[in-house]
């Protein structure tokens, strides 16, 4: 049983077909990188997996931990262990980061039939994690992503990843807009998350993130389907030659 199985997936956004016969398997313990030019369908794949409204699966199957995903609500996917790190994390003034994180964690525990973690214990854990990611713990008191810089928002996504301990992390261009220091911090967070029990689907434009997070597999997405797969050397080829050879 694979952690994630995508078989012959077709998906549309606002009626426009984007993903076309996409198939992919991610096993526990693996990191897969999805690369591809703009408009190739990378973010669509991430959003389809997370169940974003408006992203319609028109054919094919997606299963996560041996459970069909297509008709499952976004919150149930999250509670089952699927995590999407947003390309553009949303700002929510008036809802503190800590309140939001605790509510999210409680929902995960409730779904597992477990008791909520004590507020004190959770806050201590969240503050320690924030510090380790180079985020001032004071950020936890502020509104969710409110007034955060681009780098701080991405670190906040990684903070959530580490706190919620999902089985599969889908990182949608988490490296975009990051300076070198932030990139290294984010990469360190992902490497810290990595274990034999979970998987990572890393969506990126650039090879630079893969200097810090070594993928087991690299896939090239073009016009909605995977056109090439290989090991980390495929990413190096893309970096050197670009995507032009895909159409050649």
């Amino acid at each position: 049983m694979s952690l994630l199985e995508v078989d012959g997936l077709y998906a549309s956004v606002n009626g426009e077909p984007i993903l076309k016969d996409l198939s992919l398997r991610v096993e526990a313990g693996e990191i897969h990188a999805i690369m591809g030019p703009n408009g190739s369908g990378k973010s669509t794949l991430a959003n389809v997996l997370a169940g974003r409204p408006g992203y319609e699966v028109t054919a094919g199957q997606v299963s996560f931990n041996d459970t069909a995903l297509v008709d499952v609500a976004p919150e149930a996917r999250a509670q089952a262990g699927l995590f999407l790190a947003f390309q553009y994390p949303v700002e929510i003034p008036g809802v503190s980061n800590m309140e939001f994180l605790k509510a999210a964690w409680d929902s995960h525990l409730a779904a597992q039939g477990a008791q909520p973690e004590s507020a004190v214990g959770f806050m201590k854990r969240a503050r320690a994690l924030a510090t380790s990611l180079g985020l001032n713990p004071e950020f936890l008191k502020r509104g969710v992503n409110e007034g955060f810089s681009g780098g701080e928002k991405k670190r906040n996504e990684i903070l959530q990843l580490l706190l919620l301990e999902p089985k599969l992390a889908v990182l949608d261009e988490t490296d975009s807009g990051l300076d070198i220091d932030a990139l290294q911090t984010v990469a360190a967070g992902v490497n810290r998350f990595r274990s034999a029990d979970n998987g990572v689907l890393l969506i990126t434009h650039y090879q630079r993130l893969l200097n810090h997070i070594v993928p087991d597999r690299v896939h090239v997405l073009n016009e909605g389907c995977i056109v090439a797969s290989g090991d980390k050397h495929l990413a190096e080829k893309l970096e050197a030659e670009g995507y032009a050879w895909l159409s050649g």
């Binding site: 609500a73 929510i92 003034p93 008036g94 809802v95 509510a103 999210a104 929902s107």
Partner: peptide, 26 residues
């Protein structure tokens, strides 16, 4: 914002409640 909260495991009603509260508290 609703989807963001749901993608973290909050049900629709809980997400709506939190966003409404956040709107007022702002």
């Amino acid at each position: 914002a609703l989807f963001y909260l749901q993608s973290r495991g909050l049900g629709p009603q809980q997400a709506q409640r939190l966003l409404s509260l956040g709107f007022l508290r702002d």
